[in-house]
Design a protein around this nucleic acid. Structure first.
Ligand SMILES: NC(=O)c1ccc[n+]([C@@H]2O[C@H](COP(=O)([O-])OP(=O)(O)OC[C@H]3O[C@@H](n4cnc5c(N)ncnc54)[C@H](O)[C@@H]3O)[C@@H](O)[C@H]2O)c1
Ligand SMILES: NC(=O)c1ccc[n+]([C@@H]2O[C@H](COP(=O)([O-])OP(=O)(O)OC[C@H]3O[C@@H](n4cnc5c(N)ncnc54)[C@H](O)[C@@H]3O)[C@@H](O)[C@H]2O)c1
Lengths: 219, 219
DNA sequence: GTGACTTTGTGATATAGTTAACAAAAAAAC
DNA sequence: GTTTTTTTGTTAACTATATCACAAAGTCAC
């Protein structure tokens, strides 16, 4: 078969999981159909943007009717590969890491933290939220064994780059970085930064310098 | 005096805390000057973008020389109101909330979580990371008493809207929402959503559907 | 002091994302 | 079956952001 599909805009891609979650909600409420206007009210995204987003995948709706919840849900499940489990590793079982381990990302998500790593001997060998914690010495071995290529980084900033290098060595493909460090990686590896201190600080800046809410939501 | 300043682009505003942090790093390394190219390497933002960002505040650098670290740092400290402490409340002292309470956002940031709230009697009355936890019954009273107008929301999704209404009642101005709920607020109140499940899910989507790294970093 | 080099600040341009507006299609009402 | 109403899908316009490329203004070496 030809290719995946035409590449959709990144902004759209970032909204897909949001749509998917709210469609799930509607579905479990027994709703059969939904209009872009209703969905807009729920997810707080302009209805024209929603229609545009959906249109990248073809004509999913029906004029004068809206969208069939079941059909749309099924479509997005396929599009977001929700039938295939993505296994993730978490490096650094501290305050933030522990919170993530205790959270069930699987609930409408099909992503699971399968394994944790730390250097703290009091943590190695334990399980948190059913996720076993291993020592960093076993990083490569275990990642290869489990076939994991996505990692969440929640270690202290000063060791972030060193650990990143080890992860690259272990053939990781993507890195969700919660540390304040900006990482050096080869171009074949995707890194997203979620910098909570920056989020808080810029939020405070917006509050002080921008007149209230001209919506500008960080997803 | 006239007005604040010309309004700078939101994308720029979101990068300011990042610049500020790295300038602090350079400063404590004893560096006297820095070029946009060096800074670019450190923060992973195109050097032209950095120069453009800085230029919104006037001519901060010197041609053929670069930027004076001390001067720039002082300038951004003022711009980001770093000399004035912003007090923040945290609602919902669970997994995520506890992680935040244990984290020192004050380190180069001048934002501090001053107070926490929960309904869990085992948490009320304790302190976590030196932050006292109060019962939700005292929400309005305490927020007014402490003069707090920014809140972080880390409660279960089903109660998010109810608590939001209480916060509005308590005259909050901004809300950093970590729950998956999309909140209804009057336009005078600013809400930023940080939706970690969406971040993870869309990250996985990018990994599968977009050829490696055409950089597209969520700050 | 002179010439070579560096680096800014910014027009111009390119790229990305959002939104208004509406014809076309279908549904719903009658 | 006809009319009215609803709501999509998309064209066109707008707004925002990023980047190129280079003159201008300086620094630096000698
Ligand atoms: N906690 C927050 O709210 C918060 C907010 C913003 C940013 N962050 C960032 O997130 C990261 C984690 O924060 P935290 O509060 O969980 O820190 P933490 O100190 O509680 O946890 C760090 C964990 O990493 C482990 N670790 C240390 N060196 C390691 C190594 N070489 N290999 C593997 N594991 C190692 C430690 O044993 C510890 O368990 C930090 O970079 C921090 O700056 C955290
Ligand atoms: N932990 C994570 O990694 C993670 C990831 C993604 C999203 N989230 C979201 O963040 C939020 C918090 O997650 P968590 O894992 O910390 O949950 P949690 O259950 O550990 O904590 C929730 C806290 O809120 C308190 N609470 C409940 N009802 C309350 C009320 N009416 N008023 C005040 N406090 C109340 C509970 O007592 C508890 O302490 C949830 O909405 C969750 O979906 C968390």
């Amino acid at each position: 078969m030809a290719q995946e599909q035409i590449r959709i805009p990144q902004a759209t891609a970032r909204r897909l999981p949001l749509y998917y979650r709210f469609l799930n909600n509607l579905h479990s409420q027994g709703k059969q159909r939904v209009s872009s206007a209703e969905l807009s009210e729920a997810v707080k995204v302009d209805s024209a943007t929603i229609r545009r987003d959906f249109s990248y995948f073809g004509a999913l709706g029906k004029k004068g009717y809206g969208y069939n919840v079941n059909y749309l849900l099924g479509f997005f499940r396929k599009t977001l590969d929700q039938d295939e489990l993505t296994k993730v590793a978490l490096i650094g079982v501290g305050n933030l890491g522990t919170a993530f381990l205790n959270y069930n990302f699987l609930k409408n998500n099909n992503t699971k933290i399968e394994i944790g790593f730390d250097v703290d001997e009091t943590k190695v060998g334990t399980s948190i939220g059913d996720v076993p914690i291993y020592h960093m010495d076993q990083l490569k071995e275990k990642l290869v064994e489990e076939g994991i290529s996505v990692a969440i980084l929640t270690v202290p900033a000063p060791v972030a780059q060193i650990i990143t290098d080890q992860l690259i060595e272990a053939d990781i493909k993507g890195l969700l970085n919660f540390t304040p460090a900006r990482l050096n990686v080869p171009p074949s590896i995707r890194v997203h930064h979620i910098d909570l201190a920056v989020e808080l600080q810029s939020f405070v800046y917006f509050l002080k310098h921008y007149p209230s809410n001209e919506k500008e939501d960080t997803i």
